[in-house]
Amino acid sequence: MLARRILLRLLQSIPTLAGVAVLTFVLVRVVPGDPVAMMIPPGADDAAVARLYAMYGLDKTISQQFLIWAGQALGGNFGISITTRQAVTGLIFSRLPATLELVTVAAFVAVALGVAMAVIGTRFAGRAGEVVVDGITGFFLAVPDFLWGLAFIVVFGVLLPLLPISGRADPTQASGLSTEFTLIESFVRFRWGITTDVLAHMAMPAVALALPLAAMIARVLKSSLAEQMGQDYALLSRVKGFSRWHVILAEALRNAAIPTVSLTGVQVTFLVGGTVLIEKIFSYPGIGSLAIDAVINRDLPLIQGLILTFAVIFILINLALDLSYAALDPRLRHG
């Protein structure tokens, strides 16, 4: 039942991915700018230049180029990055875990903070507590993640130097880990010194990404909590003798979560988009900073590979979202 549903959704996403692939391939090639020209050393002869173009397959027509690229891509080969001369697939896979861990931590912080603010605001509805919560969410929402990141660097990196402002781990420490999922691997292998170090590097970028999202979650969740608290079942639960905290957390929260989950899904894709900038600000070695460098250097094979990677991430987030509705609402389980 569940497996079939997942399989169906994955099959449905194939045309989307194919569309994205064709579109980026064409767009990237149609626009002006010649990546190879940037690499040609001064005084190179024409034959050498032609060899260079041939090496990246740029001497063929767009449709030929696409067929070659697609054929290789199906086999997991996305070509060679023009600037770093590494295989695109390997490059992306070496950077992807850092971004996935960052996004996961950021999403976790955002949800925890957002839910906490919504619950507190609901508990003190109509009192000073609600005004404070509304003020904080308004402020979190007004300031974009870019500015939060910079403010954190100034405050917690320079004025009170508590946290590292760049990188992912202390480079002087040999990690000896076998995957790039440094956070998870160091945790499960009891290398908690490394875990702490990675978390310290992640703290500022993750919270910067999380604050605007937390505020958005708090707003939507608080308004649907208010609606749920007016429902008869919430009143009945209070008459039964349960405290407001209990009614909010054990009764209303789950029903109020559904609109919030659908918002969070869309916003988590934006969070993934936001990593591009935040990783650049914090020199964090993920696919976001890789993407910016690729765009600035017009590294075509890398740009294509990255856009497809982002597309796959977005599709998976939406799939996870879809499945979580059924977990939240028993009415959707058989249908």
């Binding site: 429902q231 008869d232 009945l236 639960s237 008459v239 789950r254 029903n255």
Partner: peptide, 13 residues
């Protein structure tokens, strides 16, 4: 309390 609306008085989840 016996509430008014038996639909909304039971928690759907």
């Amino acid at each position: 309390l016996i509430p008014q609306d038996p639909l909304s008085a039971l928690n759907p989840s």
